[in-house]
Amino acid sequence: MTVTKTADAQTRVLPEIADPSQVAPKDARQLTRLFLDQLAVLEEGTHEYQYARNTLIEMNVTLVRYAASRFRSRSQDEMEDIVQVGTIGLIKAIDRFELSREVEFTSFAIPYITGEIKRFFRDTSWAVHVPRRLQEARVQLAKANEELRSRLGRMPTVKELSQLMCLSEEEVNEARLASNGYNSASLDAAISSSDDGEAALADFIGLDDNALELVEDFNALAPLIAELDDRERRIIHMRFVDELTQAQIGEHLGVSQMHVSRLLNRTLSKLRTGMLATN
């Protein structure tokens, strides 16, 4: 591979990996950072660029399988589709990741992967292919059923539904038939068994990870910190990374605690203003 220089970095020969999908997770983390670093300086469309990108995809497919494992109640065929869709999210994460954000790639990629999987479920929740007009009619039918049941105190007839929905009785029957193609299950439905007894679908529904909400904040904050001068960044690091007191920071800088307090408040105000401007 030809070594070339750019304004920010220098490309170098990447290690040849025979089977990236077999790389151990503990090694994949370090190699991922190396390949992402080189991907940022390689020219798009070159053989080296494609090798780096394809290797990153194969090496991190375990992230996709991890995200897909939350939906293990699905059939084998569905799981293969879920992994394929999740891989699209992984590719988007690789193409959009920037090392300058100082965020772990895993934390950055998982939301992209799960987002694609959720979008897949939203768009393909029908057990059989149903025309769009009938999918929309099913929703309209459910609302009409609820309204008439509340009003009449009984199940409405097809004629009553057709009048409320402004559809023919034949179209109402089609919408009813289409409803049978929608795949749904009770959260209490048993989906597997183990030594401890049957497991319900609700047992496999994950909780929202509040820490993921911090990813966007970190991404927005990183360039703002990069714009600070050396002393401001040093103060921020000592206060929030080293967790030094203002008095200890003052000793390191040779200034009073009061002066450190003023500098810290001014820097935090600058960062706060920048964060508000990006939202």
Results as ranks from 00 to 15, higher is better:
S107R: 06
Y112T: 01
V41W: 09
S193F: 05
Q248W: 05
M1S: 04
R33M: 03
Q246L: 03
R176P: 02
E198L: 03
L14P: 15
A9H: 06
N180S: 11
A93S: 13
L214M: 09
Q140G: 12
V172R: 01
A24N: 10
R65I: 01
S194W: 04
S186I: 02
L201T: 06
F121L: 00
F240D: 00
M155Y: 07
G115C: 11
R266Y: 02
V3M: 03
P131I: 15
A211F: 00
S73Q: 07
R72S: 10
A178M: 06
S184G: 11
L99F: 04
P111E: 00
H252Q: 14
R29I: 02
L264C: 00
D27Q: 14
A189L: 13
L271I: 01
T273E: 05
A9E: 09
F97C: 03
V255C: 15
N60M: 12
R133F: 01
T273R: 09
D195A: 14
S261Y: 02
D188E: 15
E171R: 11
L134G: 11
V85Y: 01
D37R: 07
T114W: 00
D196Q: 05
H237D: 04
E171N: 10
V61G: 03
G274W: 02
S179M: 13
R133K: 13
E174V: 04
M155W: 10
I91A: 11
I225W: 01
H237I: 13
P156V: 01
S256Q: 07
E48W: 10
V130P: 07
G206C: 02
A199H: 10
H259S: 12
I235Y: 01
G115T: 14
F105M: 10
F35Q: 12
E102L: 00
Q50R: 03
Q135W: 06
A142R: 12
F108R: 14
D19H: 13
L14M: 13
Q10N: 11
L268I: 09
D230N: 03
V13T: 15
T4K: 09
A144F: 08
L141H: 07
M238S: 08
V3A: 08
S193K: 04
D208T: 12
R74I: 00
D19G: 02
W126D: 05
I110D: 02
E160P: 00
F121Y: 13
L39S: 10
K5D: 15
R74A: 04
M238Q: 12
L152Q: 07
F204T: 06
F108D: 03
F204V: 04
D95N: 14
I17Q: 12
E98I: 04
D229S: 06
L56S: 08
K118N: 06
L228R: 11
E98V: 05
A40M: 03
T46W: 08
